[in-house]
Nucleic acid binder design. Structure first.
Length: 561
RNA sequence: GCACUCUUAGCUCAACUGGAUAGAGCAUUCGGCUACGGACCGAAAGGUUAGGGGUUCGAAUCCCUUAGGGUGCACCA
């Protein structure tokens, strides 16, 4: 039930539509100001009266409704306090009836959202920068899906470019097949780093690398075989990480995939007179000095990153007919995407407006930026392992008799890391710090998981009878929980609208805090029967909502920890 | 140099996109288990929202400007 709508129906103001009223009504921040509020300042000008007076007069003319208990005029606001008991009953009924699908909706039915995220580079390590990216993308993927959208997760593999020539060159010089088979990407990275060191001394290595890459492009069997082998080794390792993160993709079409799909796009640009020659290269220029030109074909005829992204944009539109096409990529690529989107727009396609660069911050180390070339990276695998190890240690301290410790430590450790990635606004830079990622107290995944485990424990220990006294939920702490529970879908919607998973992190943290406060204040098991049952229903609903929301964040919740 | 972006408590972040006394976590100090899980709860202290203008009944939020940080700007991806 929509209280805003109800309240809007109860108020009549000359010249103000119900829709306008609806938009003006807000949630009260402070419980002392009731549950909903109508600020009356906007009316002051047309009504030529003070907001305080308007609120006072409205208070007297508001129609009564059983769901609204108190109407008060305070400081130019008209505050509404709802019937908490009816609200609690309705909310808990709904949560418990819908269970795992509480918060879900079909509002996105018939709309497809493409989400390009993670996009790992072949033969390069899966480092914490990718973890931030992957966590955000995967969470958006699940959340759009929950709201009924058809989602297409695309891992736009970085599997093209001269780096593969470098790698072949390096492998031929210093590579050991068995060693690389055994050590995987570590082994590849090692020879890649060595190549860069040697190339500094000997320029000719770079020429050799370019030749090898040309071989790949020309379909030389030996070069292709190595290329495929590098890819296989990388994906094997990357998949292990995806499994731990519970992330999967619908498409792994990366740069190599678009290799033969660029020509038609270039032809069309040519036809439309957008592609012009500049210093031997083919570029698209923008009006005035809005942006530097977008370079699409090099002097030597080779294509570029932007060319492949153009091809990908068209491919995705054609194949998925998307409603939105999201690119979850660090803000480093800001100009790149602005250019690509603009070029599509200049070609006359109005769906250019549906492409969105979901930019996120950069992850760096305390000693500075990460660099694959110099081997200065933190591997996701290592971070997860360290977190899981710590979780296991904490379990040994606090709950040594727990069953399935390893499995639970995995859920807690990985959860803590993912949560840390999603906790603050996506645009924020992160200076990677083990202490922060491994924090298990305060606003962290383990805190939320702990809250969940508490709920589970209560449900296990007691049974819920039919005699439910909902009036027991009329206190501020219980009401706070009910309010938060009722806003799960709003949390999803806002996360999707802003492409911002941290909204859900905020919400699930707030809910956990509210629950723990309530838990401390109120005796549950052992309370009078009707009260006990009402409180247990609240516990059960809290448990359900935490589970639903953590799932979208990509965090598991063990029943015991 | 130009463009994008960020700056809120000692540190890390919120603030429902213009609304009421700017809120949390960590760290610090103090307090709370003869109660259902102490990975918890409560309290204290901590602020000229980087500085300055402007718009507005009302600004952390919008506009201008200054300073500082990050990122990007032609043949890498």
């Amino acid at each position: 039930m929509d209280y805003k709508k109800l309240i809007a129906e109860l108020i009549d103001i000359n010249g103000v539509s119900k829709d306008e009223l609806y938009e003006l009504i807000t949630l009260s921040k402070d419980a002392n100001n009731g549950d909903y509020a109508l600020p009356c300042f906007k009316f002051a000008k047309t009504m030529r009266k003070s907001p305080a007076l308007i609120a006072q007069e409205l208070k007297n003319s508001v129609r009564q409704d059983d769901n609204i208990k108190i109407v008060e005029a305070v400081n130019g606001y008209l505050n509404f306090t709802i019937d908490k008991v009816a609200f609690a009953k309705r909310t808990l009924d709904e949560v418990l009836r819908e269970g795992d699908s509480y918060g879900a909706s079909d509002e996105g039915n018939g709309k497809t959202v493409c989400i390009d995220y993670s996009s790992v580079n072949i033969a390069k390590p899966f480092h914490i920068g990718h973890l931030l990216n992957t966590s955000i993308g995967a969470s958006l993927y699940r959340t759009f899906n929950k709201l009924g959208y058809k989602t297409v997760g695309i891992n736009h593999l970085g599997d093209w470019g001269t780096q593969f020539g470098k790698l072949i060159s390096a492998y031929k010089r210093w590579g050991d097949k068995e060693d690389i088979e055994k050590r995987g990407v570590d082994g590849l990275l090692e020879i890649y780093v060595k190549f860069h060191e040697e190339a500094e001394k000997d320029e000719s290595l770079n020429d050799e690398a370019r030749r090898y890459f040309k071989n790949i492009e020309d379909g030389d069997e030996e070069a292709l075989e190595l290329f495929r082998w590098f890819k296989e080794i990388t994906m094997k390792e990357v998949m292990k990480v995806y499994d731990r993160l519970h992330v999967s993709f619908d498409s792994y079409n990366g740069e190599a995939f678009y290799n033969d799909k660029m020509a038609p796009v270039l032809d069309e640009l040519e036809e439309k007179g957008l592609l012009v020659l500049s210093e031997g290269a083919k570029v698209v220029k923008f009006d005035g000095d809005e942006m530097p030109p977008c370079l699409l074909v090099r002097q030597d005829g080779a294509t570029l990153y932007a060319t492949r992204d153009m091809a990908a944009a068209f491919y995705r539109k054609r194949n998925y007919d998307f409603y939105k096409s999201l690119y979850v990529v660090a803000y480093q690529q800001n100009l790149h995407f602005r250019q690509v989107f603009k070029v599509v727009e200049m070609m006359g396609y109005d769906w250019a407006k549906d492409m969105v660069h979901v930019a996120h911050g950069m992850v760096s180390l305390e000693e500075g930026a990460m660099s694959s070339r110099h081997g200065k990276v933190v591997f996701v695998k290592d971070v997860l392992d360290t977190a899981v190890k710590k979780a296991l240690k904490v379990i040994e301290e606090k709950n040594p008799n727990l069953e399935g410790k390893e499995d639970i430590a995995e859920k807690v450790g990985v959860g803590a890391v993912v949560f840390a990635m999603l906790a603050s606004g996506r645009i924020k830079d992160i200076v990677f710090d083990y202490d922060k990622v491994l924090a298990f107290e305060g606003e962290t995944a383990p805190y939320v998981q702990y809250t969940y485990a508490r709920c589970c424990s209560l449900i296990e220990k007691a049974s819920i009878g039919d005699n439910v006294d909902y009036s027991a939920l009329d206190d501020p702490s219980a009401h706070e929980i009910v309010k938060l529970i009722s806003r799960l879908k709003d949390s999803y919607r806002e996360a999707v609208r802003r492409y911002e998973p941290s909204v859900m992190v905020r919400h699930v943290i707030d809910l956990s805090k509210a629950f723990n406060k309530f838990y401390f204040e109120s005796r549950i098991i052992g309370a009078e029967e009707g009260v006990k049952n009402a409180r247990l229903l609240l516990v059960k609903a809290t448990k359900q909502v935490i589970k639903n929301e953590l799932e979208l964040l990509g965090i598991e919740c063990p029943e015991h920890m």
